[in-house]
C-alpha cells in the first residue's frame, strides 16, 4: 500500500507550477481511470496526485455564437443540457454511460483521456469536429480530437500535457445517426459506436462525417469528401461509389468486421436521404 502526496491546486497557473516541479504525477478529477477499475479496498495512485476538480477554469462552460467550450473537469452530468448533448439522440448516448451517480462525478476530460480505448462519446465529438486544448508549462496547443488517434486508429496520449478545454464549433444538425456496435465499451470491452452527422444547406450536403470508435477509431476522409457538396438527396451513383469506398477502406484496416459495418453504413446513407434541412 503506497501512500501518495495529494495536491489541491486552486488555479491552472498553480497546477502548471506543480506539474513542472513534481515527478510521477497522476491527475485526478473524476474517477474514470480508477473508480470502477480498482476493486480492492485500498486505492493506488502514482506518488503524486493532483486533484483538479476544484479549479474554476477547468469547470466552466462558455458559449459564443460560433462555438461552445467546456473545461475538462466538467462532469458528464453538467454537459447534459449543452450543445451537442441537448440534442435528443446525443443525450441518449450520454445517458448510456453509467448511472446519474456515475455521471455526477465522471468528467469529460477523464472520458477523452482514458487512453486504453475510445469511450462512448469520442465518436460523437469527433463527428462534431471537437478541438482539444492542451496546456504544458510554457505553451498552449490545440488539436482536432481526431489526432488523438494514431495511424492505426489506436488512442495516443502525449505525456507532459494536460487537457484543459474542449471546444466544439456550433453547426446545424440535420442528420445524426448513432448506433452501438459490439459488446461492452467500458472498461475494455470490444464495443463501440458508429456516429454520423450531416448538415444540409439549400439541398446540398454541406457537411458529412462518419466515425466509428471503440478499441480503435475509423474514418474515411475521401468517402466523406465525395458526399460533401453533393446534392441532397444523394444521386444513386454517388451512393454506390461511397459504399464501395467504405468497403475498401474498412477492409484495408484489417480490424473492423466489414460484413457487420457495411449494412450499418448503408443505413446511415438511407437515413441521410430521409433527412430534411
Amino acid at each position: 500500500m503506497n501512500i501518495s502526496e495529494i495536491h489541491y491546486p486552486r488555479s491552472l497557473q498553480e497546477l502548471m507550477l506543480l506539474l513542472e516541479r513534481e515527478m510521477n504525477v497522476q491527475i485526478v478529477a473524476g474517477g474514470t481511470t480508477f473508480g470502477y477499475i480498482q476493486t480492492t479496498r485500498y486505492l493506488s495512485f502514482e506518488p503524486s496526485i493532483m486533484y483538479i476538480g476544484q479549479i474554476p477554469e477547468l469547470r466552466s462552460i462558455h458559449k459564443t455564437e460560433r462555438m461552445i467550450s467546456f473545461g475538462a473537469a466538467c462532469t458528464l452530468s453538467e454537459l447534459e443540457h449543452v450543445y451537442p448533448f441537448e440534442h435528443g439522440q446525443a443525450r441518449k448516448l450520454l445517458h448510456t454511460i453509467g448511472t446519474p451517480a456515475v455521471r455526477n462525478i465522471a468528467t469529460i476530460g477523464g472520458h477523452l483521456m482514458y487512453g486504453k480505448r475510445f469511450l462512448s462519446l469520442w465518436a460523437l465529438l469527433a463527428c462534431f469536429d471537437a478541438e482539444l486544448e492542451f496546456r504544458a508549462f510554457s505553451k498552449t496547443s490545440t488539436k482536432n480530437i481526431w489526432y488523438s488517434a494514431d495511424e492505426m486508429g489506436m488512442p495516443t496520449i502525449e505525456s507532459g500535457r494536460l487537457l484543459t478545454r474542449i471546444r466544439i464549433p456550433l453547426q446545424s444538425i440535420d442528420h445524426l445517426f448513432i448506433q452501438r456496435i459490439g459488446g461492452a465499451v467500458f472498461p475494455d470491452g470490444d464495443g463501440g459506436y458508429l456516429v454520423s452527422v450531416a448538415t444540409i444547406d439549400r439541398r446540398t450536403i454541406s457537411n458529412f462525417k462518419l466515425v466509428i470508435a471503440g478499441p480503435r477509431a475509423y474514418r474515411d476522409y475521401d468517402a466523406e469528401q465525395r458526399i460533401i457538396a453533393a446534392p441532397h438527396p444523394l444521386p444513386a451513383r454517388i451512393m454506390q461509389t461511397v459504399m464501395r469506398m467504405y468497403a475498401e477502406s474498412l477492409r484495408k484496416t484489417n480490424f473492423w468486421n466489414v460484413e457487420l459495418l457495411l449494412p450499418l453504413i448503408s443505413q446511415v446513407l438511407e437515413a441521410l436521404q430521409r433527412s430534411t434541412e
Binding site: I6, V28, G31, Y36, L43, F45, Y51, A101, I105
Partner: peptide, 28 residues
C-alpha cells in the same frame, strides 16, 4: 466497491454519487 450495489450513495453538493468510487481526498 464498483458503484454497482448503490448502498453507498451520498449527496455531494446536492447530487448523488457513489462514495465507494470516490477517493476520500475528493471530499475536501
Amino acid at each position: 466497491l464498483e458503484g454497482l450495489c448503490g448502498t453507498c450513495l451520498i449527496l455531494l453538493e446536492g447530487k448523488p454519487v457513489y462514495s465507494c468510487l470516490m477517493p476520500a481526498f475528493m471530499l475536501r
